[in-house]
Design a protein around this nucleic acid. Structure first.
Lengths: 401, 401
DNA sequence: CATTATTTTTTCATGGCGTGAAAAAATAGC
DNA sequence: GCTATTTTTTCACGCCATGAAAAAATAATG
C-alpha cells in the first residue's frame, strides 16, 4: 500500500459519508472520518476543484449563530451520472441519476423477453441507454448497474438464468462495457433490494439480515457482517429450492417439493386454482392475477386462503432452517404492491415457532415491505453511485467536467 | 486513516506473509507486498531492530550463485509467546508456541468438567497457564487463544454452552485478560479447525468452504469470501439442529429429529445399541466407545452398519440444504482418529445427489480429515500468532525484548 | 459604525512514509 | 587482484496528514 492509496481511501470515506448522510458540514465530516481540519481542507478543496463536490454557504433560516458560518459540502450533481437498468418480468426499466443521487431520467418498455434472443436483448439495452444519455448529454456516464430476476454471476457480469428469459449466459457486462466504456455491475434483484434496505433502514437492518423476495419465484439476499453476500458461484442465496415436501408439488427447477413450489406467485396460484394437480405446467403469473388472488383470499375464498396458508408454512419452514443454520436474524419480507405477507403472516410465525429452540420475538425480527420495484430501483441507483464514488476517490489527477 | 496506519498495515502484511510462507528472501516479500526494495529495507530494518524479525545469511548448500547472497528474513522466536488453551470432552490442553510458531510447551490434564463450577474452572485455567509461563520466562506472553466445544460468544469472549460443562456464560476472556494482561480470543472449535485448514490446505479450501466436525455432537464452521464467519450472535453455524425427521430421534437440544440426533457420536451409539428406543438418555460417548462402534461396523455388524448409514443420510441431507441455500462449496469432514467418514461416505453422497439439481463432482467437494485434535491445536496457535502479528505491526515505537 | 468576541476555514511549517536512482556491500569467476 | 553480478542500503524527492497559527466571516457590543 502506497501513500496515494491512503489519500484515495480517505477521499472515498468522505464521499461515502456524504452519500449516506447527505450534505454535511466540515465538522460532521471530520467527526465521521477522524481526519484533522487541515486534512479536510486539503482533500475537500481538491475535490471541489475537480468538480466532484460543491461548497455552499447555507444560512439556515431558524438558527442565528455567532462566528463564521459553516459551509455545507455536497456531492456535485454535475460530476456525472449513473444508469440503472432492470429487467423484471416483461418490464425493462431504465433510469438515470446525477451524482448527487437525483433522478434525471426514467423510461420503461415492455419486452417479449421469452421470444427475444441474445443479440436483440443486448441491442435493446444499448439503445435504451443511448436514449437516456441523449437527454442529459452534459453529464458524463460513469457507471451502469444492472438488476435481474434470477441467477447472475456478478464476477463475470453475466446473467445465468431467469424465469423470464429463454437463453443462458447473457454477457451483459461485457457488451455494455464495450459499448459505453464504463464499469457495469450485474446483480441479482434480491441482493440489490438488500442494499437498498441496508441504506434506508440501517437502524433495524444493520450487519446481519436476510431479504426474501416473493415475485416471480422466491428470491433471497443477505448481509453478513455488514457486507452484502454476493454468493459463491452465483449471486446471493437460494431459499426457494430447499426441499420441503419430498414428492410434493412440482417446482420450476425440475424437482418436487421445493419451498418455492408453494411459496411463490406460481405456487400460490396453482394451489388456489386446482388443488388436485400440483404437477400442472408453471406459466408466468401476471401482477393482475396475483392481485385478484389476494382479493379472493381477503374476501374469504377458502381455496385462496388455503393457498396462502400453505405458502406461509413453507416460507416459515425455510426461514427456520436459516435460523437454525445461522442464528436468528432480522428478515425483510419484500413483495409487490399488494400486502401479500399479511395473508401468510400467522402461518409463517406458527411454522417458525414450532421448530425453533428458543422463544423468539418475531415482531422484532420479521419486517414486511410492499414496494419491491421501488426498492430494486433504489438498490440499483445506490450501487451505481457507490461505484462512481470509488472511481472519483481514486482520481488524483485533474479531471475535466 | 493516518500515515502511521499505513505503515502499520504494511508491517502487518509483511508479518502475515512470513507467517504463511515461512522464512523468505526480500525479493519474495517485495513481490508479495508490492512494496519497493527501499521500503522493505526500511520496514524490515526497523522490525529487526525491534526484535520482531531476524535476518540470517543463508547459504543454501546446493546452490552457488554469483553476487551478494540473499539474506533470509524470519520471524524472531524471541519476540514473544502465545498460549493455546482448549477444552474438549474432559481434556484441557495447554500449549505454547514462540513467535515463530514452534511449540515450546505442552501440558494436558483431565478435568471433571461436569462437576466443576465457574470459579474452579477459571482458576484451573489460570494456574495451568502460569505453569506454562514458568517454563519459558524469557518470552513475554502476548496472546491467549481459547477453543471450546459448543457455543461461544467471540465478541464478549464468553463461553455460552457446551455439552461437557454444566454452567452457562463463563467469562473466560474477561478473567484471563485481567490475570495476564494480554488479549484473549475465545472461539468455537469448528471455526478454529476451519482456520487451520484454511492455512494448511489453502489450495483446496480457499475462499468459501465449510467444515463439519463430528465429535461430541455435530459442529460446523465456515469461510465466506475468504474470511472466517464468526456468526451473528454466537460463533459459527449449526448444521446439527436443522430439522431432519420431525418426531424422530430425540436430540440433545430438546427437540426431536435434528440431524445431530442421527449424525453424531451419541446418535450413532444410540442407533447401534437399541434401535427401538430413540428417546433414551443421551450420555457422553467416550472415544473408546466410538472406536469400538467403528470396529463393529467394519466387522460387518448389521446394527452398527445401519447406524452409520443413517448418520450418513442425515449428514447428506444437511449438506444438501446448505448447498441449496448457498452454492455447492468444498466441505471438510473432520473426525476423530478413526476413519469414521469412510463408513458413511456412500450414504452421504447418495443422500446429496438425490436432492441436488446439478450433477456434482463430490470427490472434488468432499474432503475428510481424521485428526480433529491436531487441527484444533493448529487453529489455536495460528489464531494466537495472528493476534500477536497484529500487535507487533502496530508497535511503531521501540520495544523491549 | 467601528470594535470585540466567536466560530469556521485556510495556510504554513513539520515530521513521517514510500519511491526511484544511485551508491555500497558481498560474492563468484577469471 | 580485478571484474561482473546480485543484493541491500542510502539519499533526495514528492506526497500525506498534523498541529499551530493566521485569516475570514459573522454576531454582539457600545
Amino acid at each position: 500500500m502506497r501513500s496515494d492509496d491512503l489519500r484515495a481511501e480517505n477521499r472515498h470515506r468522505l464521499l461515502s459519508t456524504l452519500r449516506a448522510d447527505g450534505p454535511s458540514s466540515r465538522t460532521h465530516l471530520g467527526e465521521a472520518s477522524g481526519l484533522s481540519q487541515a486534512a479536510l481542507s486539503n482533500l475537500l478543496g481538491d475535490m471541489i476543484e475537480q468538480g466532484i463536490l460543491t461548497s455552499s454557504n447555507n444560512s439556515k433560516a431558524g438558527e442565528v449563530r455567532r462566528g463564521r458560518p459553516q459551509s455545507t459540502i455536497s456531492l456535485n450533481p454535475m460530476a456525472g451520472q449513473g444508469i440503472a437498468l432492470s429487467l423484471v418480468n416483461d418490464r425493462c426499466v431504465i433510469r438515470a441519476t446525477d451524482y448527487s443521487g437525483e433522478l434525471i431520467y426514467t423510461n420503461e418498455l415492455h419486452l417479449d423477453t421469452k421470444a427475444a434472443d441474445q443479440q436483440s436483448l443486448l441491442t435493446t439495452f444499448t439503445d435504451q441507454i443511448n436514449l437516456g444519455l441523449h437527454e442529459n448529454k452534459a453529464l458524463p456516464l460513469r457507471a451502469i448497474s444492472v438488476g435481474f430476476q434470477g441467477v447472475t454471476d456478478p464476477l463475470q457480469g453475466q446473467f445465468l438464468w431467469s424465469p423470464v428469459i429463454s437463453m443462458r449466459k447473457l454477457p451483459v457486462a461485457k457488451t455494455l462495457e464495450q459499448n459505453f466504456n464504463v464499469p457495469v455491475a450485474v446483480n441479482n434483484d434480491c441482493l440489490l433490494i438488500a442494499k437498498a434496505l441496508h441504506q434506508i433502514q440501517s437502524s433495524v437492518l444493520t450487519d446481519n439480515f436476510s431479504t426474501i423476495l416473493l415475485s416471480c419465484g422466491l428470491g433471497m439476499g443477505m448481509y453478513l457482517s455488514g457486507e452484502p453476500f454476493t454468493g459463491i458461484k452465483s449471486s446471493g442465496l437460494e431459499l426457494g429450492h430447499i426441499r420441503y415436501r419430498p414428492g410434493g408439488a412440482r417446482c420450476r427447477c425440475g424437482k418436487s417439493g421445493c419451498i418455492e413450489a408453494y411459496a411463490s406467485d406460481y405456487g400460490l396460484r396453482r394451489s388456489a386454482c386446482n388443488t388436485k394437480d400440483l404437477h400442472s405446467p408453471l406459466g408466468l403469473v401476471s401482477r393482475d392475477q396475483l392481485s385478484s388472488l389476494c382479493r379472493q383470499a381477503r374476501g374469504g375464498d377458502k381455496k385462496a386462503l388455503q393457498a396462502f396458508s400453505e405458502a406461509g408454512q413453507a416460507l416459515g419452514y425455510g426461514l427456520s432452517n436459516v435460523f437454525s443454520l445461522f442464528d436468528p436474524m432480522p428478515v425483510a419480507l419484500v413483495g409487490p404492491d399488494e400486502q401479500i405477507f399479511e395473508l401468510m403472516h400467522d402461518d409463517i410465525i406458527e411454522s417458525m415457532s414450532s421448530s425453533s429452540r428458543e422463544q423468539l420475538d418475531f415482531d422484532q425480527l420479521i419486517h414486511t415491505y410492499e414496494n419491491a420495484d421501488n426498492l430494486l430501483q433504489q438498490g440499483l441507483h445506490f450501487d451505481a453511485m457507490e461505484n462512481i464514488d470509488k472511481q472519483l476517490a481514486h482520481l488524483n489527477s485533474q479531471m475535466a467536467v
